[in-house]
Amino acid sequence: MTVAEFFGCGLIAFGPSLAMFGLTIATDPIRTIMLVASAFFWLLALLFSSILYTAVVQLQDYLAFGVVFSVLFQELFRFLWFLLIQKAEGGLKKVSDGNMQIVENKHILAYVSGLGFGMISGAFSLVNVLADMTGPGTIGMKGDPKNFFIASAVTSLAFILLHVFWGILFFNALHRRAYLQLAYVILCHMLASCITLMNPIYSVTIPTIWILTILSGVLAFIVAGGSHRTIQSAFRGRPQVLQVNADATGNFTQVGGM
């Protein structure tokens, strides 16, 4: 069971993001570099929130404190990353070498950096759990939840996707100065993270998070210029898009569409 569970949970959590990475990012060196760099920014955010968490000794028992500030730090670093990309736009033009897609279509960079944030955050929240899955050990001995692993994997997947959508919404909000969207992203992130404080009441947390995920996905899809027609054309004109999941299809359509 252990190895099977390891692969199952690992693929649940990282399968979609790996597919997105392989289909949309790995082919382009610049996108790959941007992905790694945005992951690095997420790491910096985590580092700062950990420093804060460690420094404030009195509140270490209250995880909520760490979570709230971590969310704020993540959004701050997403903003800094956005600023950096803005600064580097000229350079990106050179780097992208005539392939102006990445510069002209802002959503690509947003998507790439969102995926970078998502993958690294999913990895950080799940790798050690995954490593424990291979055993030895038994889950749920002392009244602990028996579906700890699968719940972790499903929530990680939701968070990876959420980060992608947040990335798109956040960047779009900054580009168009739509501060409502910005607020939505931050509040949604805060809500999703704080909901997980209620774990292990999975019947509440997982549906909530997935509702948030789908909502954010739809919003991101609309913001990125998607509509009923683009889905149709995506399915008709580009059969290879069929292989991407529904949320990624939105991005992908957009990527190809402009």
Partner: peptide, 8 residues
Amino acid sequence: LASQQVYI
């Protein structure tokens, strides 16, 4: 965070 299944 991981042991309490809190996601940031």
